[in-house]
């Protein structure tokens, strides 16, 4: 269970570039919740994920994961509870290292790194099976450098790295935005399948309203560092893109122009 309690974050405080990125966000996700996050540019979507991941400390508020207060825990220590996939396919993997080495690094997330061999034969077999299920043809190329893979392959690999060792929370930060539509769909479907099968708790930021509606059991919309809409259960199942646009106008009292919000309908 994730509990975000009234968190605040301001970047470049006291300068001309001051930006109040998070303005008192509170959110509770139950185990197995899959929450999609939408909102315009600069609404604070990715910032919430980064706050939870501990990229920097929050100014105020608390973040609690399965009764563990992680507010004061730095990023690399918090990592043991989290699986993360980033927007840029280059961010989630080490390009100069092999596929199996990347997976091995992820498998040891949260463990003490010893002087034992970094990739064992047994785990390689496990990676083989796991990659085979992904059906990307990567299982036979495990000693290939990740830098030679396509963006979609790298994102799929990052997804496997994030979920193979079951995280308390999976954070997907617009992880399909940099991919072509066909690959994006494949990676998204794969994400959805893993979250359901492994019964993971997840947050997924997206620009795509249809994806936000089609996936997960909960949807939040953000604007100016606040959660302005929180839809779940039956209501979410029956949601349409037009409903969403209308709701946003009601709440924020402004015309929801696609241009400004950079949300896409399809």
């Amino acid at each position: 269970m994730l509990e975000i309690k009234n968190i605040y974050k301001t970047f470049n405080k006291g300068t001309i570039n001051e930006k109040k990125a998070l303005n008192g966000i509170s959110l509770t996700l139950e185990d197995g919740d899959f929450c999609t996050v939408i909102g315009g540019n600069g609404a604070g979507k990715s910032t919430v994920l980064n706050a939870v991941a501990g990229v920097w400390p929050v100014d105020a508020g608390q973040i609690i994961l399965d009764d563990i207060d992680v507010t004061g825990i730095p990023e690399h220590k918090r990592a043991k509870y989290l699986g993360r996939v980033f927007q840029d396919p280059m961010t989630g993997t080490a390009a100069t290292m092999q596929i199996d080495e990347n997976l091995a690094l992820a498998m040891r997330r949260g463990q003490r790194r010893s002087f034992k061999w970094g990739v064992t034969k047994e785990e390689r077999e496990r990676y083989y099976e796991a990659l085979k299920e992904f059906d990307l043809g990567l299982e036979t190329r495990m000693s290939v450098k990740v830098g030679t893979l396509s963006g979609g392959q790298r994102q799929a690999l990052t997804l496997l790295m994030a979920t193979m060792k079951k995280p308390k929370l999976l954070l997907l930060d617009e992880h399909t935005a940099a991919l072509d539509p066909k690959t994006a769909k494949k990676v998204l479907d794969l994400s959805d399948k893993i979250i359901r099968e492994e019964h993971l708790t997840a947050m997924m930021v997206t620009h795509n309203m249809r994806d936000a509606i089609a996936h997960g059991n909960r949807l939040i919309m953000m604007n100016e560092g606040k959660i302005v809409l929180d839809i779940r259960g039956e209501e979410k199942k029956n949601l349409t893109v037009d409903d969403l646009l209308q709701k946003f106008e009601e709440i924020s009292g402004e015309e929801f122009s696609n241009d400004k919000a950079l949300l896409s309908r399809n």
């Binding site: 990023e75 990592a79 989290l82 463990q111 002087f115």
Partner: peptide
């Protein structure tokens, strides 16, 4: 050494610090 779990943290840090931290490595 660079084939061990410990040595691999150094290679990962040199290659991609964001990734290293996300995998629990103190860069």
């Amino acid at each position: 050494y660079f084939g061990t779990e410990h040595g691999m943290t150094i290679r990962a840090t040199g290659c991609n610090q964001a990734m290293a931290r996300a995998q629990g490595i103190n860069t």
